[in-house]
Amino acid sequence: MLLFVTGCDKKSDNEEKVDIKTEKETVLTQDYTAPFSLHFTDGTILNMQKNKNGFKIDNNGTATLFAFFSPWCPPCQVQSPILNNIQENFKEKLQVVGVLVGENLTNDDAKVFAIDNNVTYKISQGSENNFFANALGGVSEVPFIVIYDEKGKFFSQYFGVIPEEILTTEIQRIF
């Protein structure tokens, strides 16, 4: 069996910077442990806060799969029906969240992507998406998937298009 994984490089360099002082002192310009909210295209929000094990995710104790994507990315479009099936198959135990990343993207870009790709999972848009990506250490290519268990503890991450069978097997390991 041959598995071909592909992804799209990030189009922008709009990332938070680390200021390095000459006396070997590093100062972060952003506090990534601060609480933040992901804003979904349907008007709902998801409150989150980074901690030492992952994130505190206010989603009623369900596991969460975050799929970072850009609308211009063909592999992201290929990943959408797989994520739809994952959301449907694990709807009682897992929430799938699409996280729109890139420069100059709007709520309309997220909605058009959802319509064009028949997306059935929630899509987050807004500046908090970049904050979230940076809190993870940056997202350099899409699609990028990161999964957290029901307690918000980091479980696994993937770059590129991931076959449904692999995601299903991995998600079943959480439960």
Rank of each mutant, 00 (worst) to 15 (best):
I166P: 02
T41G: 01
L2Q: 02
Q95S: 13
F55K: 01
F113L: 11
Y158R: 10
N104G: 05
E141G: 10
N107Q: 14
K56M: 13
D13K: 14
G138H: 14
F175W: 06
I115L: 12
Y158T: 10
V161I: 15
D108P: 03
D13A: 13
F154G: 10
Q30E: 15
I162F: 01
L3W: 03
G152K: 04
E128W: 07
N84G: 04
S80R: 01
Q49T: 02
A34G: 03
N14T: 14
S156V: 12
K50I: 11
N59E: 13
F90D: 01
V161H: 07
F155E: 09
E16F: 07
N134T: 05
A135K: 09
I123N: 03
P81D: 05
Q87I: 11
A34T: 08
A135T: 07
S12A: 12
N84Q: 07
T120C: 11
E23F: 00
F66T: 03
W72R: 13
D116L: 12
D9Y: 08
T26Y: 10
E92F: 05
G43E: 04
D116C: 05
K52R: 05
F155L: 10
Y148G: 08
F154P: 04
E16M: 06
V96G: 01
D109A: 11
I57H: 01
E25M: 05
A110E: 02
N129W: 06
T106I: 06
G102S: 13
N118R: 14
Y32A: 12
N60E: 07
F4C: 12
